[in-house]
Amino acid sequence: MVELNKKYHIGVKKFGFVNWIGFKSLWLKECNRFMVVWQQTLLSPLVSSLLFLSVLSLALGNNRGDVLGYSFISFLAPGLIAMSILGQSFSHSVSSLMIGKIQGNIVDMLYAPLSALEVSMAIILAALTRSFLIATISIGVFSLIVEIPIYNILYIFVFGFLGAFILGSLGFITGLWAEKFDHTATVTNFVITPLSFLSGVFYSIDKLPQFFQTISHINPFFYMIDGFRYGFLGKSDGSINIGLIYLSILSVLIWYVAFFLYKKGYKIKS
């Protein structure tokens, strides 16, 4: 027994400032969760975007007129892609926490040697991974049927990242707050969908009265869509620099709220 004690030292595992092994494992687990049902998580958003594109192109026609110097369909396509990745980023984070709470296995994360920083970032980055996979697939498919120029891929990445990160963080907060899927549907139907549709996805805000243009410039979804579209067309409805600053600050604030609520155990610890 004395020899055994000398040979093996029992102590607390030291992970350093960040438990990279646990962080990577949770991120991979979240990615595997949406990859298992890829038809629903990756293919379904593409089909929805294509249906929007088809219906509007048939109803309005590609010769509806120039929007920002491009045909209506070329203007519409980047907005639909952006709207899709934003919605799916929110959906991933909120469903991850809701499923864990309903099935009771959220305790696995609570008892694991993972900090609030590691858990929140792993789930949100998995939502980002899902969003960027959808964006890549959608851009590839859309480019086959619609003429979509690419002005600057850096703007596509930055605004796509900021938008998906904000929605992933918002989904994380919603997942902590909601007690059933009806609550998450309320946020989707009364917050996410209206802000998305009123963000300039289907129109240029120059067509709106001045009062509604001012309201649109407050809507963060407007800057997400506008900046993402700018990466394709090189033209925008609003200020790209203001959008970058606005979304960067908003992303930090919303993530911090998500981090703080999880750290306090909001609605997940008795």
Rank of each mutant, 00 (worst) to 15 (best):
I225W: 02
T214N: 13
F228Y: 14
S236C: 08
I225H: 01
T193H: 13
T188A: 14
D237I: 07
N189F: 10
V158I: 14
T188Y: 12
H183Q: 12
L233Q: 13
Y223G: 06
F228L: 05
L233W: 11
D182A: 15
S196A: 15
S196W: 09
V191E: 12
I153H: 05
I166M: 03
A185F: 11
S169T: 06
G163W: 00
I148K: 05
A178F: 00
F202E: 04
F212P: 05
Y155M: 00
L162G: 08
Q210D: 12
L208K: 15
S236W: 04
F159C: 09
I173A: 04
M224Q: 09
G234K: 09
A185L: 13
L176Q: 10
G238R: 02
T214Q: 13
Q213D: 09
L167R: 04
L170R: 03
F197P: 09
F232N: 08
P220S: 07
I150G: 08
S169V: 07
L162R: 09
F197C: 11
L208H: 14
I192S: 10
T214D: 11
D206L: 10
N219T: 02
I205N: 13
F159K: 07
D237P: 01
F232H: 12
L176M: 13
Y230I: 01
I153R: 02
G171E: 03
P149I: 11
D237W: 01
I150M: 13
E147L: 06
G200H: 07
I225K: 01
A164K: 03
I148D: 05
S236F: 02
K180A: 14
S199V: 01
G231C: 06
L154E: 10
V158K: 00
S196G: 15
L167E: 04
F161W: 13
N219F: 04
I205M: 14
A178E: 08
M224Y: 04
F190T: 12
T186E: 11
G168N: 00
T184M: 10
Q213P: 07
T174N: 07
E179P: 04
A178S: 15
H183F: 08
L162C: 10
L170F: 15
I166H: 04
G160D: 04
